[in-house]
Structures are given as structure tokens and as C-alpha cells.
């Protein structure tokens, strides 16, 4: 995913710096949406769901077909791009992960990688590997705010992401499903003895995480209008880094981690060079694992005996 192309000038002006912060926030809110899925699934069944980046890709394609083939309005397309990945996420959990609920975690992890490869290759088969232009629904004309140019797509992406994250927070903190999710993530057996259907809660967690990833897929189409079947690989990995950075299992951590990743990428591109972008983004993972393995907002977890 290339941040908005900016021609590098000699020396970096203040305006450019702030401009890159704006770009970073837009990109970061997309990472945050994807990272939430990683962190929620990890929180509840201790699995790094490597197929999550591909769910995001599918969201982009659902949005693409809804907007172009079916000519649906943006809101409906976005809703579909959340709904269909949500159902797919539940299906994947049901057929691929649930039978392995009692298997060693490495078996589930390898299965997740397998699912990821399966989705990528099916997508190449069905959608063809060629990139497609994502329809431009919002005017590209930038808004000028005292010298800083904010494009309308960026504003839309940021606002949508914030609304979705607020909705998620409400769901997790205030509703019975959210409370059940938190209970299951702490003690599955005790939760089931409080009358909670664990399988249903795990299923819903996948649905929620996948819906957010699907939304992120549409968001990315709005800012960087090119989609293709392997587009989920890099952002998937980076969102994973973001989730670890913020503290895997922590929902605010995923949001923060996503923003940090987005900002780092934009600023590295502007201040150093875009060739260093990914190297520095992934170095962050190494640094955080060395300095604070639980992540910025993560709690140290005692191994349960």
C-alpha cells in the first residue's frame, strides 16, 4: 500500500511534515480497523488469525462489486462489505478452527496460514490477479485548512473508522455480547457455567473482527484506488504488528498500534525514503518485543496452570 505519492523535495518543510501526519492518521485508522480483528480473536481463543488480511481483501472486493457491478450506493456497499466478510469469518472459524479447539496452538496457527493461502488463490482464480481500479465515489478535491491539504476521502475514512471503533467499544463495554466476550476471554469454563454459549461468542467475535476488516477494505479502496487479490498480505502483516505493538488482546491497544504504524510509515516515507518504509515498520515489531513484549497497553499475562 503506497501512501499518497509525494515528490521528495530537498529538505523537509513543516507543511509537508504536517501533511504526512494527516496521511498517517488516515492510513493508521485503516490499520487500526484490521488490527482490532487480530486482537479480538487473539483475546478470545489465543490464535493469530493469519487469514485476517485476506478477509480485508475480500471486503475490498465485495465493496468493488457492490459499487460497480450492482451500482449500489456507498452506504449499502459498505454495509455489504462488512456483512459478507462477517459471514465468511464465521464460516472459516466453524470449518477450519473449531474442530481444532483442543488441538495444540501450532496446529491452529498452521491451519490459519493454510486458510490464508486458500483465500488468496481462490481470489486470484475468481477475480483474476490483475489490479482493478476502485471506483472514485468521493471528489478528490482537497480541502485546504491553513496550508494543510486534507482530501475528502481521507476525512471520510477517518470519520468512518472512528464511528466503527466507537460502536465496537460500546458493544464490548455495554452490551451482553460484549460482556460475554470479555468473560470468555478470561475463563472459558467459568463463562460456560454462567450460561454463556462459548461457541456462539467465538463465532460472533470472528464476525465482528471480519466486519471491521471488510470495512477497512472499502476504506483503503477509497484512499488508494487499486485493489487486487494479494492486497491483504502486507496490510495484514502490518496490522498484526500494530496489534502486537499496542498489546495483543487489548482493544484500545489495537487502535493505538494502528495509528502508530500509519504515522511511522508516512513519516519514514517523508523524512527518510519510501524504500525504508516497510523495513522500519517491521523493525518496530522487533523493538517492541525486546523492550516491552506485552505491547504498549498490554497487560502481562500469567500463564495459567
Amino acid at each position: 500500500m503506497a501512501p499518497l505519492c509525494l515528490i521528495k523535495k530537498e529538505g523537509v518543510e513543516m507543511g509537508l511534515f504536517i501533511q504526512q501526519i494527516v496521511n498517517g492518521i488516515a492510513l493508521g485508522s485503516i490499520y487500526a480497523l484490521i488490527a482490532l480483528g487480530y486482537t479480538m480473536v487473539y483475546g478470545i481463543i489465543r490464535l493469530i488469525n493469519f487469514a485476517h488480511g485476506d478477509i480485508y481483501m475480500l471486503g475490498a472486493f465485495v465493496g468493488y462489486f457492490a459499487l460497480t457491478t450492482y451500482k449500489l450506493p456507498f452506504g449499502v456497499s459498505l454495509a455489504l462489505a462488512m456483512l459478507i466478510p462477517a459471514l465468511l469469518g464465521m464460516l472459516i472459524e466453524r470449518v477450519a478452527y473449531r474442530p481444532l479447539r483442543k488441538a495444540p496452538s501450532i496446529a491452529v496457527l498452521i491451519t490459519a496460514i493454510g486458510v490464508s493461502l486458500l483465500i488468496e488463490n481462490l481470489a486470484m482464480l475468481w477475480f483474476s490477479p490483475d489490479p482493478r481500479p476502485f471506483p472514485q465515489i468521493f471528489p478528490l478535491r482537497p480541502l485546504e485548512l491553513s496550508g494543510i491539504r486534507v482530501s475528502i476521502p481521507q476525512v471520510i475514512v477517518f470519520i468512518t473508522a472512528v464511528i466503527l471503533m466507537m460502536a465496537l467499544n460500546f458493544l464490548v463495554q455495554k452490551t451482553k455480547v460484549g460482556k460475554a466476550m470479555r468473560a470468555v476471554s478470561q475463563d472459558k469454563e467459568a463463562a460456560s457455567l454462567m450460561g454463556i454459549d462459548i461457541n456462539r461468542i467465538i463465532s460472533l467475535t470472528f464476525a465482528l473482527g471480519s466486519a471491521l476488516a471488510g470495512a477497512a477494505g472499502v476504506m483503503v479502496g477509497v484512499i488508494y484506488p487499486r485493489i487486487q487479490p494479494l492486497m491483504g498480505v502486507m496490510p495484514g502483516l502490518k496490522a498484526f504488528v500494530a496489534a502486537v505493538l499496542g498489546g495483543i488482546g487489548s482493544i484500545p491497544g489495537a487502535m493505538l498500534g494502528g495509528l502508530i504504524m500509519g504515522l511511522t510509515e508516512s513519516l519514514v516515507t517523508a523524512l527518510i525514503s519510501s524504500t525504508w518504509r516497510d523495513a522500519i515498520a517491521f523493525s518496530l515489531l522487533i523493538v517492541i518485543l525486546l523492550v516491552k513484549p506485552t505491547g504498549i497497553l498490554g497487560k502481562s499475562m500469567r500463564e495459567k496452570v
Partner: peptide, 23 residues
């Protein structure tokens, strides 16, 4: 439970509320 198994990271209220939702 014999060895207490509360949802340790949740508030006292939330521990009870979770159980209320069953009915």
C-alpha cells in the same frame, strides 16, 4: 468453584451482570 474462578479483570458489577444475561 472450590478454587475461586471470578472474571478477575472485570469489575464486581460486570461479574454479576454477565451472569444475569443468561435469563
Amino acid at each position: 468453584f472450590q478454587n475461586i474462578r471470578l472474571f478477575n479483570q472485570l469489575s464486581v458489577t460486570d461479574n454479576v451482570r454477565i451472569a444475569f444475561h443468561t435469563r
